[in-house]
């Protein structure tokens, strides 16, 4: 077992590597964590995800903008790719739930969608990424196929946002318990409410803020020894 002092050192290096978008540092620290017997889930949540929480604070303070967040996300994935195959328990590796995610037909912008996907990846969800410019009926089909609890839809432009309403209707008609999240620049609280969605984020930056808040909640629940789901 790794000492507490060493554990903290590795976690700090993972976190700093994400914040400073140093992919090599994150890879080295993730490999060190595994070689030295650290728990992969601990390294993800208290190293990588903790770093992303700091990134969220920097975004709030307008020190970081989307380009920096994208580079931080690259660093986070560099670590996640190494650590994720080593998650030990079912609850660590995907039993939190499933999510279907994609950018609606007519929209080929996917930065916000990819940031939200990152949040689900970090949080231990099984993510079914449909990509971008996704025909509306595909969301409903994929939700039915996978029985996913969450469907996350993204549209960057007003001109494609209207498609979201149709998707929500298609899904809720068949399965009213599915939680539907909307994201994208034109999406406001009023639009989400009008369309019958369960949550929203209005830009790539806000998406990551929302994502980071959710990761923070998961970390707190884990630290309190409570079931995360």
């Amino acid at each position: 077992m790794v000492s507490e002092e060493r554990r903290q050192e590795v976690l700090k290096s993972l976190s700093e590597g994400v914040v400073e978008y140093r992919e090599d540092q994150v890879k080295d620290s993730a490999n060190a964590a595994l070689e030295e017997g650290m728990d992969a889930y601990d390294a993800i949540m208290n190293g990588l995800a903790a770093g992303m929480e700091i990134v969220g604070d920097l975004y709030d303070r307008q020190e970081y903008f989307v380009p920096e967040i994208l580079m931080c996300a690259d660093a986070l994935y560099a670590g996640l790719d190494i650590l994720k195959p080593h998650l030990k328990t079912a609850s660590d590796s995907g039993a939190r739930g499933q999510v279907v995610i994609g950018t609606v037909q007519g929209d080929v912008h996917d930065i916000g969608k990819n940031l939200i996907k990152m949040m689900f990846d970090v949080g231990g969800f099984t993510v079914h990424d449909l990509g971008r410019d996704v025909p509306l009926e595909k969301f409903a089909e994929e939700q039915l196929r996978t029985d996913a609890e969450i469907v996350a839809l993204s549209a960057m432009m007003t001109t494609t946002m209207m498609g979201m309403k149709k998707v929500i209707h298609m899904i809720k008609e068949k399965n009213p318990d599915v939680a539907i999240m909307l994201g994208g620049a034109p999406v406001t609280r009023d639009v989400a409410k009008l369309f019958g969605a369960d949550g929203y984020a209005e830009s790539a930056g806000n998406a990551v803020q929302e994502a980071i808040k959710m990761i923070g909640q998961l970390r707190k629940l884990d630290q309190a020894g409570m079931p995360a789901k």
């Binding site: 037909q105 007519g106 929209d107 080929v108 410019d133 432009m157 001109t159 494609t160 209207m162 498609g163 149709k166």
Partner: peptide, 13 residues
């Protein structure tokens, strides 16, 4: 999107 319902603007694939 010739066959899409309603208004949908062109995109670059």
């Amino acid at each position: 999107y010739e066959n899409a319902e309603g208004v949908l603007y062109p995109t670059v694939p």
